[in-house]
Measured scan of single mutants.
Amino acid sequence: MSIQHFRVALIPFFAAFCLPVFAHPETLVKVKDAEDQLGARVGYIELDLNSGKILESFRPEERFPMMSTFKVLLCGAVLSRVDAGQEQLGRRIHYSQNDLVKYSPVTEKHLTDGMTVRELCSAAITMSDNTAANLLLTTIGGPKELTAFLHNMGDHVTRLDRWEPELNEAIPNDERDTTMPAAMATTLRKLLTGELLTLASRQQLIDWMEADKVAGPLLRSALPAGWFIADKSGASERGSRGIIAALGPDGKPSRIVVIYTTGSQATMDERNRQIAEIGASLIKHW
């Protein structure tokens, strides 16, 4: 058993032996400061991975655009179909130039040979490839079927209504393609630790998130040596930015963190910096 498999397999085991986890309101002070700095709403939640207890939250039940963070949920739905014998990670999917949409750094290189379902999930999560996400959405029946999958998990909040890139429109008060921090954190925890997916599929999902290559300026920039993080970021119109993550010290995840912001006029660099500073406060007061 690899170190990674050891880590995921023991998450339920550690729940019975973990020390009490204490919240630190200092992080919420930073979240509120980020709102002031960005001139935008910020949603935040910090969840204990083992118990599911909410440690801190700010606007946990307000809607925010999901942006590309939905791609983790999408690959969770794909893995659920794999577990049920309805899909194979090794199945190759062929597509054409007409299928390519904006920001497809991986799929645009494989027009001649296509990509496997496994490769598409990797591209969608680690590189946020939009065509990969659309191709995967097609395999499960489209955005409405992803919403149905989430409903069956008990998440009646999170919804996907459109495809890439239209889902990134982020119109104020538009509930399409949105979630709430509390709903996203709970759903992510179920995917990573619950019985919905097999152990192998849970491991695969967290491996893809751990290999994320496009979230460096966010929480990863504040991470001390030896800490673990598996994450997925997102960005969209109207100053929207977000990240969902499982992270913790000693090389294993122990908390879920979800951060969303929307409605800012700030630059992408400034949005990144504010999220990184929230992460730094979280780690300092861990």
Rank of each mutant, 00 (worst) to 15 (best):
Leu19Ala: 15
Ala222His: 13
Arg189Met: 11
Pro20Arg: 14
Trp286Cys: 15
Trp227Arg: 01
Leu19Gly: 14
Ala266Val: 10
Ile206Val: 15
Leu223Val: 14
Glu145Asn: 14
His94Asn: 12
Thr147Pro: 06
Glu87Cys: 05
Ile54Pro: 07
Gly251Asn: 12
Leu205Ile: 08
Leu74Ile: 04
Arg202Cys: 07
Asp36Ala: 14
Ala245Ile: 03
Asn134Gly: 00
Ser240Leu: 05
Ala222Asp: 07
Ser128Asn: 03
Met180Gln: 14
Leu89Ser: 05
Ala182Ser: 13
Glu166Asn: 09
Ala222Phe: 07
Asp113Cys: 10
Glu169Arg: 07
Thr198Lys: 10
Ile283Leu: 08
Leu282Val: 11
Leu192Ser: 03
Gln265Thr: 13
Ala246Cys: 12
Pro181Gly: 00
Ile3Ala: 09
Leu79Pro: 00
Leu218Lys: 00
Asn134Ser: 01
Thr267Glu: 10
Ile256Leu: 08
Ala200Cys: 12
Pro172Ile: 09
Ser281Leu: 10
Ile244Trp: 00
Thr262Ser: 12
Asp99Tyr: 09
Ala266Gln: 08
Gly279Ser: 08
Gln88Cys: 14
Pro12Gln: 11
Pro217Cys: 11
Ile93Arg: 01
Leu19Thr: 15
Thr116Gln: 08
Asp113Ile: 09
Gln86Thr: 14
Glu195Lys: 13
Thr138Tyr: 13
Arg238Pro: 08
Asp99Glu: 13
Arg241Asn: 03
Asn50Ser: 15
Asn134Glu: 02
Arg176Trp: 07
Ser96Val: 15
Glu237Ala: 06
Val29Met: 10
Thr267Phe: 06
Leu218Asn: 00
Gln265Arg: 12
Asp129Asn: 00
Ala182His: 12
Ala84Ile: 11
Arg91Val: 03
Arg202Trp: 02
Glu237Trp: 05
Cys18Trp: 12
Lys190Leu: 09
Lys144Glu: 13
Met66Thr: 03
Phe13Ala: 14
Ala9Asp: 07
Val8Phe: 15
Asp212Leu: 00
Gly43Asn: 00
Leu19Arg: 09
Lys53Ala: 14
Ile125Pro: 00
Pro217Gly: 10
Asp129Leu: 00
Ala211Met: 10
Arg63His: 06
Met127Arg: 10
Leu196Gly: 11
Glu277Ala: 12
Ala230Thr: 00
Arg91Cys: 02
Val42Cys: 06
Leu38Ser: 08
Pro172Val: 11
Ile54Asp: 09
Val8Gly: 11
Glu56Trp: 00
Ala246Ile: 13
Gly239Lys: 04
Asp99Ser: 11
Val214Met: 14
Gly234Asp: 02
Pro224Leu: 02
Pro253Ile: 07
Glu145Met: 13
Ala211His: 15
Leu19Asn: 15
Ile171Leu: 13
Ile3Phe: 14
Asp83His: 02
Met66Ala: 04
Thr262His: 11
Arg159Gly: 00
